[in-house]
Simulated scan of single mutants.
Amino acid sequence: MNAFASPAGGSVLVIGGGLVGASLAIALDAAGVAATLVEAAAPRTDAQPSYDERNLALARATVNGLEAIGVWRHAAACATPIRHIRVSRADEFGSARIDAEKHGVDALGWTLPA
């Protein structure tokens, strides 16, 4: 039995093509569920009503989840790996540094245009 089975053999309407809406539509499609995605603007970054040049920082666990539902392959080409992180506070002593290579991973996470 398919965990994503649509009600009474119908289809699913997903409103909003942001990261969550688009991911859901892709996951439903991969699971064999008919899904229609409705977005207010054409799929051009500069035409999105909420476009403000922000980026998303995705943790490795988030990317693992997106890979599991077949979404990451659509976003990976636009993603930039996070290989080094330095955490500090102005006017405070000390900082923490995390390096992906030192921990045996290709990236600690990724950034992606919103």
Rank of each mutant, 00 (worst) to 15 (best):
A42F: 07
G65Q: 12
L28V: 06
D29F: 02
A42E: 14
P113H: 00
S95D: 09
D91E: 13
L112G: 05
A3R: 12
A59V: 11
S95W: 10
A40F: 05
G21Y: 11
A79W: 00
T36Q: 15
L108N: 08
T62F: 03
R73V: 01
S88L: 14
R54E: 10
D99P: 05
V14D: 08
G70K: 05
D46L: 10
V12T: 10
R86M: 06
S23L: 03
L108F: 04
H84M: 08
G9N: 03
S50Q: 15
V14Q: 03
R97S: 15
F93R: 15
A79Q: 00
L56Y: 08
N2H: 07
A77S: 15
V14I: 12
G104W: 04
L56P: 02
G18F: 04
L112Y: 12
T45S: 14
E92I: 12
A3E: 06
I85P: 04
G18V: 02
T62D: 05
G94F: 05
L58S: 05
A31P: 04
A47P: 02
I26G: 05
E92A: 14
R86H: 09
L13C: 06
A8R: 15
G109W: 00
A34C: 10
T45L: 13
S11V: 09
T45W: 14
A8H: 13
G18H: 02
A100C: 00
T111E: 07
H74Y: 13
S95I: 00
T36K: 12
N64G: 11
C78M: 13
R44L: 14
N55L: 11
G17Q: 01
A35T: 02
G10S: 10
L37K: 14
A31H: 03
P43A: 02
L24A: 11
V20S: 05
L37N: 08
P43K: 05
A35Q: 01
H103Y: 12
A77I: 08
H103I: 09
P43Q: 04
E101K: 09
S23K: 00
V38P: 02
V105D: 03
A68F: 07
A59K: 06
E92K: 15
A114E: 14
L24S: 07
A79G: 04
A30Q: 10
A5R: 09
L19R: 05
P49S: 08
T45I: 11
P113S: 00
L112F: 08
L24R: 01
I82T: 06
D99M: 03
W110G: 00
Q48A: 11
I69Q: 12
N2S: 07
E67H: 06
H74T: 00
R73F: 03
R97E: 15
L56S: 13
F93N: 11
D91S: 13
G32S: 09
L13P: 07
D106G: 12
A77Q: 10
V105I: 07
A77N: 05
R73K: 10
E101L: 13
V14T: 09
A42K: 12
A59N: 04
H84A: 13
G21W: 02
L37Y: 12
A100K: 06
S95P: 00
G70A: 02
A27D: 06
G70I: 10
A22Q: 13
D46R: 09
G17F: 03
N2P: 15
A68G: 05
A61R: 13
G18P: 09
G17S: 01
